[in-house]
Every structure is written in structure tokens, then in C-alpha cells.
Design a protein around this nucleic acid. Sequence first.
DNA 1: CGGATTTGACCACT
DNA 2: AGTGGTCAAATCCG
Length: 318
Amino acid sequence: MEEVINSIQRASSLVQNLEQDLSNLVNHPGMLSLSIDEITEAFTAAKDRLLLISRQNQTPESPPTLLHETAPLEPQMDATVMQEWLRSSHQLFQMQQLHAARSTLQIGEMGGGREVEDSERTMGSEGDQVQGIHASSSRPRRRSREGNQEKKKILVPAPRFGNTELPPDDCFTWRKYGQKEILGSKYPRSYYRCTHQKLYECQAKKLVQRLDHNPNIFEVTYRGNHTCHMSSTAPSSVPPQQLLLDMTQNSNTISVQLSPTTNLSLNPGVGGGASTSRYGGDCPVVDMADAMFNSGSSSGNNSMEFLFSPTEDRSDAN
DNA sequence: CGGATTTGACCACT
DNA sequence: AGTGGTCAAATCCG
């Protein structure tokens, strides 16, 4: 596990370096590629180790919830895009660390107060219970009060190959139940709920919307917790959240979910498939989301503020 | 045929 | 009244 941590830390610092020199490196694709390769290798090394470890620790039927590869981003992206996903991925990584650190404490309120996002400001954020939606009951179409649902936003790079319309895979199966044009947004918002909503009364939902100014990035808003404890494929004896916690308890600083690999999508040099392994067991986003959910409240507030917040904010998270 | 998606309409909330 | 969220019939798809 120590090697894993070392690899991750190395990768993280490489990401930071890359981020700092990004404006220069963008003009030197070769060097940029090398840099990305280094990061990829570091994460891949960590991943390989973790896969080994997780295979030893998991029951055979447990879906691999560790580490992910998503569709690679197009190698030559502009600086803005690059910076966005670098920042977001770095933030995600920070969040993983934050979560790992906090998971050993009793997680409840976070000190910041920055967690409350705009939509929650007006509603309050109890975030503890989820109302059931019984479409066929005597009160049809009752909309659950958003303010009572935990709501977390993350930014996820859109697949640059294959079907870029697909929202990022996150290891859970989602059923789309609506799409709507949102005022002031170029792109429609898609509404998803957990496929197992009926079976397990799972109230997890997510909203997916492309960013106006950057269609290469999805803003994914998760609401409600998964109570189904199901992955996209088969029932897992251990819910992903649990795995996360279990693993993080073993390493006191770094969560092994490593969403960064995912969201970094550092695949130019890695022979990963171009398309999302939709049910392949790589479940990046949800791990992150779960991490956030399970930490009571995380540092997520307004997505942009949260993800692109200044460094002191992130260091504050440590 | 069953489950997922689409899409217009309805409803809750501000 | 405007807007976002949800429903549910129609349709698609494997």
C-alpha cells in the first residue's frame, strides 16, 4: 500500500507541475505528451497495485470498484479545457484525500460553510432524508423538496471519443427520466434516477448538463444516496461506499478510489480503450460522489467555485 | 416482450 | 407567471 501512496503522490505532484507549466507546454505537444505519460505511468502503477490488493481483499462477486479508466481525452486540447480538467481532477484528488482523512473522524458538518451551493442556500440543507416518490399513489407528481436532499456537483470531462453525448460512467445504472432545456443554458439538462429505484426504493438521482462555456465538461449533480447498494452489473456484497471507507481506513491519507485517473483521463500513452467501459467495473464518478456523500458534506458548493477555487482552499482541505 | 429513452404535459416552488 | 423537476404515454431497441 505504501507503494500505491507513493505513486499517487508522485502523480499528484506531476499534475501540479503540469498545471503550472501548462501554458508553456501547450505549445510543446511533445513535452506535454511526455509529461502526461509520466502522470499516467504513476497512476497506472498505483492502479495496478491497487487492483492486486483489491483482488486479494474482495470477494469474487464484488465488482471492482477501484480505479478507473475512462475514455481518453483528445490529446490536443486547448489550454482552457486542459486547465479545467487538470484543476477538476486535482480537486477531486484533494477531495479524496480529504475524505480519507475525515473518514477516520466522525464526519459531520464541515467547517467551511462554503459547501452550501446556490440552490441550497434558499432551501436549507438538511440533506438527511429523501422523500419517496410514489408516482402511482394518491398524490401523483409530487416533487420532492430539493432542499432536503443532499446535492453534490462535480465536473467530469466528457468523452472525447465515441459517444460524447453519453454522460460519464459512474458504476451505477441510471435511467433517464427527463430532459429539459434550461433557461440561459445552451445545452439541455438530463435527469437520471437509479434503475433500482422501484426495487430498492433507491432515491439516488443525477442531473447531467454540459457547461455552457465548455461542452467538453459535464456538470453532474448527484442527489440522494444510493440505497440499492447495487453496481451497474451485479449486486455487490459490499457497497462501493463501504469499500471506499474500508480502503481509506487502511491508508490514512489517500483514498484508493483515485478518481483522478478517471477524471484526468490520462490515457494518451495508456492502451486503454477509447470508449467508456460502461459496465466494465471502472466507476470513477460515483466513487467520488459517494465519497462526498459519505463525508456528510464535502467541500462541494458551487461547482465552479469548488473545483476551481484558489489553492489555499485546497490546502485548507488538508 | 421487457426495459430504456424520448418528449410533451403537468406540478411544485419562487 | 416563469422555471425547474417529474410523470407517463409513446416509441425505440435488444
